[in-house]
């Protein structure tokens, strides 16, 4: 009947639901017991495989079951048809969608891909599409990023071609979407370092200048975001920046960073009455470099540290320690 409200028989409903839940729990525990039993008896039959399917579908966080499942698949490998492997990948995807942050499931997926008969490039290419779609849904899932690196690495192995440039563009796209994507910034660091090491960057100087422009924009867009500051911290200390730009231009870069960061900090003081602690922390990093490069450099580090001691009491002793060394 439509229009009859559920609430009128809520009590009944509750009882029914409890009853239903109890039944579910009973089904689950007996299945756990029987499957563990099979495992202890080294049962590697299709029936056992079927039982782990049922169980893992109920509880994909059950690592022991994934292990057992792999044992069975490994034993049955020669008997299993090719379709099994695609079906298995689909099954894992269903579980990943329920639990995108469970290590065991990711682990199992990589194992299945590695054991996929012939492990052809097409399987890994499809995998890259899948991980892209996953990062589309949750761009900051570090499992996804880590997994992406593995898949790309595998594809590079198979094809013998570097995918770094495309991956850097992908990471940039994700950062542009959301500047606070720490995983994407991290990916950027990894890729840039590797691309320089492998000589994949043609105009090294132009690349560095573009990177400086990029991080300056990021800093002004969101001066509260720590992933941007982490990246700047890495970049300022990245040895290649100085060697590619040359000492003079590198010093000019540090000076212009200082000007910009002070501008942001002054703006924060005017707006909210207090310094921006990230600005001060990065200024310290920059000054450290400046002191190394120009012996007569007039440092403001003491002043910054004294402010930080008050502003950031959780790290007070670290600042005091640094002060003692000034």
């Amino acid at each position: 009947m439509h229009g009859v409200k559920r609430r009128q028989w809520t009590k009944d409903q509750l009882k029914q639901k409890k009853e239903k839940d109890r039944m579910k729990i009973d089904v689950y525990s007996s299945l756990v017991n029987s499957t563990l039993d099979r495992r202890d008896k080294n049962d590697h039959s299709l029936t056992a495989l079927e039982d782990t399917t049922k169980l893992l579908d109920m509880n994909p966080e059950f690592n022991t079951m994934w292990n057992y499942r792999r044992d069975i698949i490994a034993k049955l490998k020669t008997e299993l048809p090719l379709q099994f492997w695609d079906k298995e990948l689909k099954f894992i995807m269903v579980q990943l969608k329920k639990f995108p942050k469970v290590y065991w499931i990711w682990n199992h997926r990589i194992w299945v891909l590695n054991n996929y008969p012939g492990s052809p490039a097409s399987v890994w290419e499809r995998e890259l599409d899948i991980v892209s779609a996953l990062l589309e849904v949750d761009a900051r899932n570090f499992h996804g990023w880590h997994y992406r690196r593995m898949v790309v690495g595998k594809l590079e192995n198979i094809t013998g071609k570097s995918m770094d440039a495309g991956e850097l563009a992908y990471a940039s796209k994700k950062i542009n979407n959301n500047i606070s994507n720490f995983s994407a910034w991290h990916q950027r660091v990894q890729l840039i370092d590797r691309m320089f090491a492998n000589g994949e960057i043609e105009d090294r100087k132009e690349f560095m200048e573009k990177e400086i422009n990029y991080l300056t924009n990021a800093m002004f867009t969101d001066a509260e975001d720590q992933s941007v500051w982490f990246y700047i911290n890495w970049f300022v200390n990245y040895p290649l920046v100085q060697s590619i730009l040359g000492k003079e231009q590198y010093i000019r870069f540090l000076e212009s960073m200082t000007t910009n960061i002070l501008m942001i900090n002054d703006d924060d003081i005017e707006f909210s009455g207090s310094d921006n602690s990230w600005c001060l922390k990065i200024l310290l990093v920059i000054e450290q470099r400046q002191k190394e490069l120009s012996p007569g450099f007039e440092s403001h580090s003491v002043q910054y540290l004294e402010k930080l001691v008050v502003m950031d009491p959780l790290r007070k002793n670290r600042y005091l320690h640094l002060l003692s060394k000034q």
């Binding site: 579910k24 089904v27 689950y28 109920m58 329920k98 639990f99 995108p100």
Partner: peptide
């Protein structure tokens, strides 16, 4: 039908 048997923590889905 019995997938609710386990306390799901699907916050991050």
């Amino acid at each position: 039908s019995y997938e609710n048997a386990i306390e799901d923590d699907d916050d991050d889905v």
